[in-house]
Amino acid sequence: MAQTTAVDPAADADDTPPPSSSPRQALKANSASARERKFGRKLLLPAFVVSVIITQVPFLVTIYYSFQDWNLQRPNDRAFAGFDNYVTVFTGGSFIPAMIATIIIVGGSVLLSLVLGLGLATLLDRKFVGQAFARTLLITPFLVMPAAAALIWKWTMLDANVGMVNWALGLLNIPAVAWNTDFPLVTIIAVLTWQYTPFMMLILLAGLQSQSGEILEAASVDGAGGWRIFTAMTLPHLRQYLILATVLGTIMMIQVFDPVAIMTRGTGGTKTLSYLLYERAFVGLEVGEAAAYGVVTVILTIIVATLALRSVFKFLTEEGSRS
């Protein structure tokens, strides 16, 4: 597939082989390492083949479909369509709003969960009564099945009549809000933020705990205040963890479908690219047009994911293989 080969992590591989392998390969006889490589390839092959069959081959077929004029209601009425489907995608008026919805939902949720996650990680990074228990409770939202989270939030938390959010607002004398009908975008971002904050928190907490206590103490002895230590030392130390959390969070959320399908059905500016494609293909039965949306979505995702992945790829592999 294009996104895998176009980039050149191979260059990295030649320059910086994994630390564990370089001295060994230099020492070993050529024939032995060749046999070893052959063995390695054999081990890789099954997983590689399965991955190609399930993910790569269907994408090639999707590309083929995107050049077909094909509606499932008229299955026999199939013809080559040239770039017609792509023209529909870009001039049909649904694509740009869907892209904006995706950016707002993913961007908003990533940002909010990152900030909240940083706050929670900072609160948890100190000794207090029941610390382990607090952490256990805090990771729960991330473990909750997204379909259940969407339903519970929609019907018991955000419902206009019996929702607990409105009840809490009522305690503060704030009038009830019809979240689900008036602010669908907010409801989606709320659920996603609730689910992903624990994920961000866990990564950032690991970052905070890897910070050397002695250095912080020295800074404190030298008279640096809490805020100054946080901005001058903790945040720079956290930088790579923040990047990692952002990239992984974005990649997981960019395919967001469950809360949109369950809570809003794409109404009120929540029709993301993945929901739009679903609607065109499985409600409108427009295979060709939906395939074109699919191809465009994939290309956009590849661009974002490649840029994002490349920014953390070194970090992932170096940290992972360091022993």
């Binding site: 597939m1 991955s51 269907p58 077929v61 790829f313």
Partner: peptide, 18 residues
């Protein structure tokens, strides 16, 4: 490695119709 990690991030959109 890059191949395997990127297949994880391939949107379902890429393959669902076929």
């Amino acid at each position: 490695l890059f191949f395997f990690i990127s297949t994880r991030f391939m949107p379902v959109a890429a393959s669902i119709i076929p």
